[in-house]
Simulated scan of single mutants.
Amino acid sequence: MKMILQLVCMMLFALTANAQTLNGSAEERSSLEKATLALRNAFATGNSKLVARLHHPDIVKYFGGDNVLIGRAAVEKGAKEWFENSKVEFIENTVESTVFNKGTAIQTVIFSIKTTPKSGGSPVISRGRSLVVYMRDKNSPTGWLSLREIAQAAPDQK
């Protein structure tokens, strides 16, 4: 009996550890989803100007080690260089957690990006986990801007 109880507790913990946590109103959740979709679509169409406009002017993006982008101009430059050489496509975007608080949202996502060289060659798929802080902004095309982002390798797929 004790073993069954332990197994049930472990299963419940596993379910809650992998379940998405979120709060916020239906409008907040819907509008943030539209904003993140607009960003993924800007990457898919190679629109570096829109990618930049969806980020706060003071954006800081941490990609590990010394790989840090600071400011909207750096985001646009990096995206433009990437798009000139490759077709970029998000092929996975699994939201793990979203928390809203007074005009901000913090979201963690498991993502996969397929990068296909325009000069030929095999596509590369990069998989990671990001934590992004968004803020409401009336000047944003979507109503939200990315303010801070940290990306790291994603856990192994099960």
Rank of each mutant, 00 (worst) to 15 (best):
residue 56 H to E: 13
residue 106 I to P: 01
residue 125 I to E: 11
residue 34 K to S: 13
residue 139 N to T: 12
residue 145 L to H: 11
residue 5 L to H: 09
residue 28 E to P: 15
residue 140 S to L: 05
residue 20 Q to H: 15
residue 42 A to Y: 08
residue 61 K to D: 11
residue 40 R to F: 03
residue 73 A to P: 03
residue 26 A to F: 05
residue 1 M to W: 02
residue 26 A to T: 09
residue 24 G to Y: 05
residue 43 F to G: 07
residue 121 G to K: 12
residue 86 S to Q: 03
residue 103 G to L: 10
residue 55 H to R: 09
residue 84 E to N: 00
residue 6 Q to P: 09
residue 89 E to H: 14
residue 95 V to A: 15
residue 88 V to I: 07
residue 69 L to N: 00
residue 132 V to D: 14
residue 2 K to S: 14
residue 22 L to R: 11
residue 119 S to M: 12
residue 134 Y to V: 09
residue 65 G to N: 00
residue 98 T to L: 11
residue 105 A to I: 07
residue 52 A to V: 13
residue 142 T to A: 05
residue 152 Q to H: 08
residue 116 T to F: 07
residue 74 A to H: 10
residue 83 F to M: 03
residue 6 Q to C: 12
residue 72 R to F: 01
residue 86 S to D: 01
residue 150 I to N: 01
residue 54 L to K: 13
residue 157 Q to S: 06
residue 55 H to M: 14
residue 1 M to Y: 01
residue 126 S to G: 07
residue 64 G to L: 00
residue 126 S to T: 15
residue 76 E to D: 08
residue 76 E to H: 13
residue 115 T to I: 11
residue 143 G to F: 12
residue 21 T to W: 03
residue 55 H to E: 10
residue 74 A to I: 04
residue 98 T to Q: 09
residue 105 A to P: 07
residue 44 A to E: 10
residue 114 K to R: 10
residue 27 E to Q: 08
residue 147 L to E: 06
residue 124 V to C: 05
residue 136 R to C: 15
residue 153 A to D: 03
